[in-house]
Amino acid sequence: MQGVVKVNSALNMRSGPGSNYGVIGTLRNNDKVEIIKEVDGWYEIRFNGKVGYASKSYITIVN
């Protein structure tokens, strides 16, 4: 499943599904990501070869 990031500035990509996990990357508005699965309001995603987590509130699913 594919998604597009929708933010005003930047979205942190984290090592786990929560804001208490470390930041491993930064996503920008309109970045395209691969959604692997949903975990407690977060998406596990793949972006630029990295796998991490981002809040699903800021990612819109596209077909």
Rank of each mutant, 00 (worst) to 15 (best):
N63L: 10
V7F: 05
P17R: 02
Y53D: 00
I61C: 04
W42H: 04
V62H: 11
N20W: 13
A54H: 01
S57T: 12
I36K: 04
Y43V: 05
Y43N: 01
T60E: 15
N29T: 09
K32F: 11
Y43G: 00
S55Q: 14
G52P: 00
V39E: 08
I59W: 02
N29R: 06
N29Y: 09
F47N: 05
Y58H: 15
R46D: 15
E34W: 06
V7Q: 04
R28Y: 15
V39P: 00
E34R: 03
G18N: 06
S19L: 14
K50H: 12
G16D: 02
T26K: 13
R28V: 14
E38Q: 08
G16P: 00
F47G: 05
G22P: 12
G52E: 00
I36V: 09
T60M: 14
N48S: 10
R14L: 15
V23H: 05
W42Y: 11
V4T: 10
V33M: 04
N30M: 11
V23C: 05
Y21F: 14
S55P: 08
V23A: 07
P17G: 02
Y53K: 00
V51N: 15
G22D: 15
S9Y: 11
G49H: 15
G22V: 13
K32I: 14
N29M: 09
I59H: 00
K32Q: 14
V51A: 13
G41V: 09
D31N: 07
V51P: 06
G52K: 00
Y53F: 13
G49T: 10
I24M: 10
R46M: 15
N20E: 14
Y58C: 04
N63K: 08
N20Y: 12
V33D: 00
V7W: 04
V5A: 04
R28D: 13
K37M: 07
K50N: 13
G16F: 02
G49Y: 06
S57Y: 12
G3K: 02
L11Y: 07
V39I: 14
A10W: 10
G41L: 08
K37P: 00
T60H: 13
K37A: 15
I24E: 05
A54V: 15
M13C: 04
N12M: 09
K37R: 09
Y58R: 06
I61Y: 07
R28E: 14
V39F: 08
Y53E: 00
P17Y: 01
S15H: 08
Y21R: 03
V33Q: 00
D40S: 10
N20R: 10
G18M: 02
Q2W: 15
G16A: 03
V5S: 02
G16T: 02
I45Y: 01
V33T: 03
G22T: 14
E34H: 06
K56C: 05
N30W: 08
S55N: 15
N30V: 03
G22S: 13
G25C: 05
E38P: 04
Y43D: 00
N20Q: 12
